[in-house]
Design a protein around this nucleic acid. Structure first.
Lengths: 112, 112
DNA sequence: TCAATAGTTCAATAACCTTTGAACTAAGGA
DNA sequence: TCCTTAGTTCAAAGGTTATTGAACTATTGA
């Protein structure tokens, strides 16, 4: 069960922006940004779409270098690649997170 | 010959990021950013692709609200929607432009 | 008026994206 | 060992994107 990640040098601006150009994936990173110190499990995003669908979107984010996915037991722990992104594209992640926090879909995970 | 632009309120983060998630379009905005006070003509981007192709990419940027296109005689004058974008997504455009300036494709227009 | 210039629109094609359910794998607990 | 939990992978369908050349429109200058 391999989870391929791009190296820092393999991350491109076009790929990162392309990956974030989707409401579901913006909602995912908005959630991750709420507490960056604590990685989240896949299951915590199931309000945003089906199990399969979330798996697909998380793979997109991982392949673009936006998130890192670690395997822990039967779970995956997902976190922002904050250091890599800040180094490559200073200020980008912060400005996106600030704007994404207000998005309607970002509220879905918090509801209940 | 209508050139529809979204209003400020119609511009979404996902659409803007999606529009910028492409090397050709990043190169276009990198060029526009080199001298924001001076709008550019379509023809100045023909090094980046065919006439038809550039027309397509410029339409994408316009529809996402990233650029404004004005008709002047038989030309189009294209400029960044700096004020709208800065108001909606503070810091976003600057961080993207700073990173896009170093991109290989951005150099193509300057060559000769 | 006629031709050149600047750019758009159309149709076609190939490639990629999104979404789904069903089948799969791998770890942990009873 | 067997079942449950957590998530991935597969195949299929339908939609969108990117690219091209040919045909088109609109403005300008001769």
């Amino acid at each position: 069960m391999s989870l391929p990640h791009p190296t820092t040098e393999q991350i491109t601006l076009a790929n990162v922006l392309g990956a974030l150009g989707d409401p579901t994936r913006l909602a995912i990173i908005a959630q991750l940004a709420r507490d960056e110190a604590t990685p989240m499990r896949c299951g915590q995003f199931w309000d945003l779409g089906s199990k399969t669908n979330i798996s697909y979107h998380l793979a997109k984010l991982r392949e673009a270098g936006v998130v890192r996915t670690e395997t822990v037991g039967t779970s995956r722990l997902i976190s922002l690649r904050r250091e890599d992104l800040d180094k490559l594209f200073p200020g980008l992640l912060d400005s996106i997170i600030a704007s994404a926090a207000d998005l309607p879909l970002a509220a879905v995970v918090l509801e209940d």
